[in-house]
Amino acid sequence: MSDFLSAPYVLEYTYTRSTGPVIARFLESLRYGVLEGVKTADGRVLCPPLEYDEAGTATTGEFVQLRPAGTVKSWTWVPKPRKGHPLDRPFAFALIQIDGTDNAMVHLVDAEKPKRMKTGMRVRVRWAEERNGTIRDIACFEPVLPYLPGPVHLQYDVRPGQHYTAFLKGLEEGKLIGGCDPQSGKVYVPPRAADPVTGDPTSEYVEVADTGVLTTFTIIRIPFEGQKLKPPYCFGAIVLDGADMPIYHLISGVPYDQIRMGMRVKAKWKPREQWETSLENILYFEPTGEPDAPFESYEEHL
């Protein structure tokens, strides 16, 4: 028990507000999604409209329709909205000068983060879905962004060519298929439409081993969008036994700081029942435990 007495108390009441001719008209227009200002005797426009200007001179009662957009003259960021705030997420209170007016209106700007707020920024009215003739018919203002979404959605077919198809069909059966143009004798994995040196197709298909030499590699430590593995992990170039150029794949089954150039590796296949027409049938390459290949033996593949 505290020595000090305390008890909750609520002061709550809904008043009946007479609006008078100017405010009534303004709020009634909001109900229809129309923003209006009133002209002053000296030719200025006020929004929200008042019956008199700051000098006490009566306004004219002449209304002008306004573009529901304006410029932020000043603002404050509210990181933790209070109960009575119209928005339940962080927002800005701002003084907003509606286009074509000479004063400013207090309202909210729904900007997600304070970084997006700036004096002088352009904002537009976001109308409340249900409007009943109050200033909250303007749900808030929102930043006018200098860009717009440009969605593209196109549906394509993908058809690998005959040489790549031969490679994929091989993978379906757990084989690595290479191709060779007999004129050059070099084995390409996958087979190619043209041997780079002869220009003729590598149409003589040969199976190469799923073992080889890791020539060079990188340890990937960066997380990025679309990534399937958790860094760090190794990605490297492997010259398979029987092939004359490297393929790229993941290296695992060994602590990544023990991976070396010249390491002998072997494919770690997925369980057979999970095989598809994909190089992903091989999960990764892992060390065979054989002695490393000497640098000179794979230097030409770097």
């Binding site: 994929l168 990937i220 960066i222 679309g226 990605f235």
Partner: peptide, 11 residues
């Protein structure tokens, strides 16, 4: 049919 992204821009 293409190997999926495993390495990123510098990979």
């Amino acid at each position: 049919f293409q190997p999926q992204l495993v390495a990123g821009a510098g990979g």
